[in-house]
Design a binder for these strands. Sequence first.
DNA 1: AAAATATTTAAACTAATTATAAATATTAAG
DNA 2: CTTAATATTTATAATTAGTTTAAATATTTT
Lengths: 142, 142
Amino acid sequence: MSKIEEKCKEKGVRLTDQRKIIAKVISDSKQTFGSKDHPDVDELHKRATLIDKKISIATVYRTIKLFEESGILIRHDFKEGKSRYEPTTEEHHNHLIDINSGEIVEFVDKEVEELQNKIAQKLGYKLVDHKLELYGSKIKKN
Amino acid sequence: MSKIEEKCKEKGVRLTDQRKIIAKVISDSKQTFGSKDHPDVDELHKRATLIDKKISIATVYRTIKLFEESGILIRHDFKEGKSRYEPTTEEHHNHLIDINSGEIVEFVDKEVEELQNKIAQKLGYKLVDHKLELYGSKIKKN
DNA sequence: AAAATATTTAAACTAATTATAAATATTAAG
DNA sequence: CTTAATATTTATAATTAGTTTAAATATTTT
């Protein structure tokens, strides 16, 4: 059973066949593609239909939304228009997006996290969510 | 003449009546509403029609795009779906979005800027663009 | 002032996403 | 277990933000 399936049980989300498939697809994205993945809805649908060719795009959208609301996965709206998804990880991380290839590099930086909290507090706010995205191009070594 | 009109001249963007109106609306957004504003296209259109009720939404979209490409204004894609706009400022700044009211607080933090550069470099990238958004709720004082 | 070029308008079109109604599957009650 | 009640899925229609197009208007060039 995938980690996402476990989480569904925890959160009381009923697991239908379709949801199991979508859960597996998302789970696998991290496993087999590594942190470079983060598929969009079309890609999730495409991968899901490899398992069950009858699954509809509407179900993918609905399930993704359900999973997001249950904190099972995270949606990202990078600068490209389409949303991209990844399973929720224990540790919060940020993203660097390669502007040439679209590849994603994940990183964690404690300093940044602390700084963000400090800033919010100074402005009189309680930090609820935050987004740090770096866009860059690869430095070639010689 | 508004600052944005001046910039258009600099960049060689021809100023039609409609563009002048839209330029004024954006200029005024910072002036009269302060940093809390950042209107979306609908709001820009609404304000523009107060000056000329014949101006079409397509022109607003086209002009906004033109202004953005000329570096005259900045588009933001916060978590709400619609893009919101502000005139380009000399100094780069970040945004804290009030999740309850949609209000925006702008802030500058040198430490954050430096940190971002350092992180990108460490990952082997040249930082081209970056986005830091904090989402928070107001702390009530007692 | 006429010809060439650019912009605007209104309306049609896209792409991503959401809602709806009928069909199918799941759960609960007898 | 078998029917009624509830939830989910499918296919399709609707919606929303944004873009494109063709005809009308305006601006610039000659």
